Simulated assay, not measured.
Amino acid sequence: MSAFENGMLKPLKKKKLSEHIYDEIERLIVTDELKEGEALPSERDLMEIFGVGRPSVREALQKLEQKGLVEIKSGEKTRVTRPCTETVINNISGIAIGVLTQQNERIQLEKIRQLFEIAVVREAARVRTAEDLKQLQLALANNKVQLSNYDGFIETDVRFHLAILGCLHNPMALQMYSTFIDWLIKARSKEKFIELHEQSYIHHCCIYQAIEAGLPDKAEQYMRQHLQYVMDNT
């Protein structure tokens, strides 16, 4: 029996005109037939090329802009761009936060965080500089000051973890982690987390001491304990 007879092929789904336009322009950008900085035809020209009305063209261009593939400026031609890390993250943030309202998905993301931060803290203990340690000390001191303030503690908690990641001097990783941890915080229970401040601060101190001493194994041990404690109690 051929594929045409056994039901493997399904009827084609109808697409909106704007989706056809988006797909075609996206293909040209991805295959590098349209180069970064190159101007697209005007809306009127695109209407003629695709045989559609202005609303379909504008909808396609807006979607391309949202994906970071073009830049639209009033009074200027639309030009091809390349999506940056921030654009990519922003495109999935809303979906991610919605998914994380489900307990199982949040736990999975917490486990991904564990794998990531354990690798980071080991490297931080190995490569940290004197300036990195100063930034960690400052973050830790600010964290202590905010022990009784929920919002302040959360903010300084995140800054401490970002300071650890800062030891690797990787701006893209910093940006991605900032969004990653923001998703988790928004999905947590505020009431539960308030109780964890003091213990979390103690964990932070231990992690800092291991990084300062240049002990990757100890840094990993303390980070594992800290993240597991947070995951078990939020």
Score class of each variant (00 low, 15 high):
residue 154 I to C: 09
residue 31 T to I: 11
residue 166 G to L: 01
residue 109 L to P: 05
residue 215 L to S: 12
residue 187 A to W: 01
residue 108 Q to N: 15
residue 86 E to A: 15
residue 198 E to A: 11
residue 10 K to H: 07
residue 68 G to N: 07
residue 105 E to L: 03
residue 115 L to E: 12
residue 89 I to Y: 11
residue 42 S to F: 03
residue 187 A to C: 07
residue 196 L to I: 12
residue 137 Q to H: 12
residue 163 A to P: 02
residue 175 Q to V: 02
residue 170 N to C: 08
residue 215 L to I: 00
residue 114 Q to W: 03
residue 189 S to T: 09
residue 211 I to T: 05
residue 184 L to I: 05
residue 183 W to R: 09
residue 96 A to T: 05
residue 67 K to A: 14
residue 151 D to Q: 15
residue 198 E to H: 11
residue 176 M to C: 07
residue 40 L to N: 13
residue 43 E to W: 00
residue 166 G to F: 01
residue 153 F to H: 10
residue 193 F to Y: 14
residue 230 V to T: 04
residue 149 N to D: 15
residue 178 S to K: 12
residue 1 M to Q: 09
residue 137 Q to V: 01
residue 165 L to T: 12
residue 76 E to T: 15
residue 147 L to P: 12
residue 54 R to D: 00
residue 19 E to Q: 10
residue 61 L to A: 08
residue 132 D to G: 11
residue 28 L to F: 11
residue 172 M to Y: 08
residue 170 N to R: 07
residue 233 N to K: 13
residue 125 A to K: 03
residue 228 Q to E: 12
residue 76 E to R: 15
residue 50 F to R: 07
residue 56 S to K: 01
residue 175 Q to F: 02
residue 41 P to V: 06
residue 70 V to K: 09
residue 124 A to W: 04
residue 134 K to F: 03
residue 227 L to I: 07
residue 123 E to R: 14
residue 202 I to V: 14
residue 9 L to I: 12
residue 143 N to L: 13
residue 37 G to R: 11
residue 186 K to P: 05
residue 144 K to E: 15
